[in-house]
């Protein structure tokens, strides 16, 4: 780790001011991605602005047909939230699959979404559920937000404040873990929304989270795992590494999608 200056933001505006004012700043949320990277000297911000003590950023509220989760909400709190479990059980279930207990008690939804790791879980949920990412400057639809590997629509000094998820009719998530990191080798989130069906895939793609229109079409006819049988997606565009070839990942997208649909029908238990 290189030396840096630590700042504790007392409020959202304070954080925003520090971001504008300081040289080479970086926001620290749960630190579960940023700190390991800094320890390995792969990131070296001059000024670190800690959001930990900012109030009002870790609330979970339900209003009408949507659930809003503050950016600083820990994975474990999403997992255990009665509101999320009731409205979008698949999302609560997903949060419980992230990392290990230590990671879930520190890591935040805002940090995860801002980081947009191609193997992270939340991006699939945001995309499939048609979430809105709210920042201190604007609202960004998930469709516009995820731009590729570790890239998002966020401007340099923009802070995610909360994320709003429309409540689907039903939804399911199936995560096939990388055996080493236990991030998603392939994760598929399926959401049946009032107006459409969305299938979003994390882990598999060589340029981040993506949707599978052919699966969505098939599920529109009948929302059943059977509708996806025999459908394939091309290995082109899939990532390939020591954990699996592009062909294997393409195959797993179908397997995970079918299992996610089955889970949605079962009303995924949020253990």
């Amino acid at each position: 780790m290189y030396a840096f200056t630590y700042h504790r933001a007392t409020g959202l505006r304070h954080a925003a001011n520090l971001l504008e004012k300081l040289e080479d700043p970086k926001i620290l949320a749960g630190g579960q991605t940023l700190l390991p990277t800094m320890k390995q000297r792969l990131a070296s911000p001059t000024n670190l602005i800690d959001l930990d003590k900012v109030e009002g950023m870790s609330e979970i509220t339900a209003a009408g047909r949507s659930v809003t989760i503050g950016a600083l909400t820990r994975h474990n709190d999403v997992h255990k939230s009665p509101i999320v479990q009731q409205a979008i059980p698949a999302l609560a279930y997903l949060a419980g699959l992230i990392g290990d207990p230590a990671v879930r008690h520190r890591g935040t939804i805002g940090g995860s979404v801002a980081n947009n790791d191609p193997n992270a879980d939340y991006p699939a949920a945001c995309l499939a559920l048609g979430a809105t990412i709210v920042t201190n400057k604007r609202k960004i639809a998930a469709d516009e937000f995820f731009k590729g590997l570790f890239e998002t629509a966020l401007e340099p000094n923009e802070i995610i404040t909360k994320i709003t998820f429309p409540v689907p009719k039903k939804a399911g998530y199936y995560k096939f873990r990388n055996q080493a990191s236990r991030f998603a080798l392939v994760g598929v989130f399926v959401a049946k929304r009032p107006s459409e069906i969305r299938v979003a895939v994390t882990g598999a793609g060589s340029s981040g989270v993506f949707r599978v229109p052919s699966f969505e079409e098939a599920l529109k006819k009948r929302f059943s795992p059977k509708s996806l049988e025999g459908l394939t997606i091309p290995a082109d565009g899939m990532a390939s590494d020591i954990h699996g070839s592009a062909e294997y990942r393409a195959h797993l997208v179908n397997v995970c999608a079918r299992r996610a649909v089955a889970a949605a029908d079962e009303k995924t238990p949020a253990e």
Partner: peptide, 24 residues
């Protein structure tokens, strides 16, 4: 038998050099 995969590429880089890639 199932998990631990030490992978060197042809140029001799240890590809599985951390717990992100080496499964215990």
């Amino acid at each position: 038998a199932l998990l631990e995969h030490t992978v060197y590429n042809d140029s001799g880089q240890l590809v599985s050099g951390s717990y992100m890639d080496y499964a215990m």
